[in-house]
Design a protein around this nucleic acid. Structure first.
Lengths: 337, 337
DNA sequence: CTGTTAGCGCTTTCAT
DNA sequence: ATGAAAGCGCTAACAG
């Protein structure tokens, strides 16, 4: 690479000024059709590509969105990412992807890095930060949308958009399904204590249990890592301590699959000895044996709606539309018919 | 946001020149400890964050890598992405993620966009472009590494790094395993005709079959979409046409799972009536019933090695080390014991 | 050790 | 419809 073609090269070659080239590039209408065509030919001939860097310095817009997720290789988030990316691309935004690896320190680090990159906005999924850290981080960015996490205090100021799942309703629906099948001793593998989704699902579980008159179920609630292995280990423990349990509601499908494995190891048949309900309906859920009953959540839609909201906010939309709650849907399969 | 804090604000407040602030920021050693501390205090106090945009304009480095994959929500690629991202982050590079959605036109578009972003290099996974398009795109970027795809002609020029799986050896190993179990009528669900990995695996299959004296197996080769559904449909067709087949080697695990389903529907028991071998060892492979025999490939390592190679090349490493072939490992489970 | 000068490649503003 | 000048926020190269 000898020397990147600059706008000045195009201008010289075309025999016009920098401004004319700039106008052609930005589709300004005050350029004669003739000149425009000529300049476009030269651009193509020289293989010129404008520098977003130089442009960004003066326009203070980068056309980039920071997308922060705990872990792209988690199928849940990779679908959110894909949905978000799709919308961004359609509006000519690019996406800077950042994994936090569930580490709040790293989350702060990527947020700072995105600030230095001067992204036009951030999409923050399942943030593990404290309210204070979150408010600080958000205030430092031109626009922000939170996914799967709400801000208690800043909400009313409309400083941030929010897209969440109706975890409470989902948790309630899942638990009610088990109750309707006659189960009363229902354990809950609750996921990470820091997860807001987990709290919502637990609330739904509690509501359903209480409404049905089941009390003292709190000892049946056990936190766990949101993974197959986490579910397996916690299910073993919970079922060993409380063998009277006849059903398990799980934080997510991975945990539920871990529970499936644990039951296999403990020699407890599913769904006859014990029924299991997951959450999310990841593709895997339909493929394991027995197929998982679960609450379907549209991760893709979570991503698209969040990005749409963010881009709206970037464009200066100050209207209401700042909190979106997506419903979930119970999918009944073999693990809890 | 009234007015972003600039370096000039820090300099004024600290009573020093722009350069001193710049030196503190970039950890240049020719600043007195005292001044450095003072400036750092002011920076923190003002909440100053340097602009990578402005810096990039003068240094011609953006600290960003373009990562191009067909689809992040495909677990295969999301693990590659995660490996790559991990290495990039450790060296203070950020990652611009681009999905091509398997569309070559979109692939060209994102490549152009990355060029305008002036990324320091690109990592291109499973490119569907023609040799010419690929060469053109690569030549326009400061550095490039290809994953799961080779460039026939440009290789010797060392203009591009390459990281691939040893698909031929993998295909051969998988097929040989079936041959060793006594199978001779082995079908191959080949994946997309455009897939280079698919070609490699087919070559391995052919080598093994031929070496064992099996001829005229080409009619048992059937292309398919690289998905569960694609595998299911193609397996049904292939097994209906050639009911004498006793084993199937599949392009990847998703296809193999589709084949599993098809066999279930056709009433053919696995592994007794028909044995199945997949490729990749995705997490799902161990969880389906029967558990899948497959060739394990380390997607994470594909990502880390590729990013390491790219960053080396960006740093001007012109040494050999420009082609890496990662081995695969046969994992024997229940679908082909 | 610290400061001054001159751009990086574009767009904005104002002039013609 | 087109151009000239100024400057976005920073760093490289040189001075002191």
């Amino acid at each position: 690479m000898t020397h990147r073609v600059r706008m000045a090269d195009v201008a010289r070659e075309a025999g016009v000024s920098l401004m004319t080239v700039s106008r052609v590039l930005n589709n300004k209408d005050d350029v004669s059709a003739e000149t425009r065509q000529h300049v476009q030919n030269i651009i193509k001939q020289l293989g010129y590509r404008p520098s977003d860097i130089a442009r960004g310095l003066v326009t203070r817009r980068t056309g980039a969105i920071g997308l922060v997720v705990p872990d792209v290789s988690n199928p849940y988030f990779s679908e959110v990412v894909r949905g978000a990316e799709h919308v961004a691309y359609a509006q000519n935004y690019s996406v800077l992807l950042c994994n936090t690896e569930e580490d709040p320190r790293r989350e702060l680090a990527v947020l700072q890095s995105l600030e230095e990159k001067r992204v036009d906005g951030i999409l923050l999924c399942s943030s593990r930060l404290s309210e204070e850290e979150l408010e600080e981080a958000i205030s430092r960015h031109p626009a922000a949308v939170l996914v799967n996490r709400r801000l208690e205090f800043a909400d009313e100021q409309g400083s941030v958009g929010v897209v969440t799942l109706d975890d409470v309703a989902g948790g309630q629906m899942a638990t009610q399904h088990l109750l309707d099948s006659g189960h009363r001793m229902i354990g809950f593998l609750a996921g990470p204590p820091t997860s807001h989704s987990g709290h919502g699902r637990m609330e739904g579980y509690s509501i359903a249990m209480t409404a049905t008159g089941v009390t003292s179920f709190s000892r049946w609630i056990k936190p766990c890592a949101p993974t197959v292995e986490g579910g397996r280990a916690s299910a073993r423990e919970l079922l060993s301590t409380y063998p009277e349990l006849t059903a398990l509601f799980c934080f997510n499908d991975l945990v539920a699959i871990g529970a499936l494995q644990a039951c296999g190891e403990l020699g407890r048949a599913i769904p006859d000895d014990i029924a299991i309900v997951g959450f999310d309906d990841i593709p895997l859920a339909a493929l394991v044996t027995p197929a998982l009953t679960t609450c379907r959540t549209s991760r893709h839609e979570l991503g698209t709606r969040a990005m749409e909201l963010l881009l709206k906010r970037i464009s200066g939309c100050t209207e209401a539309c700042q909190e979106i709650v997506l419903p979930t849907e119970l999918i009944v399969r073999d693990s809890a018919p």
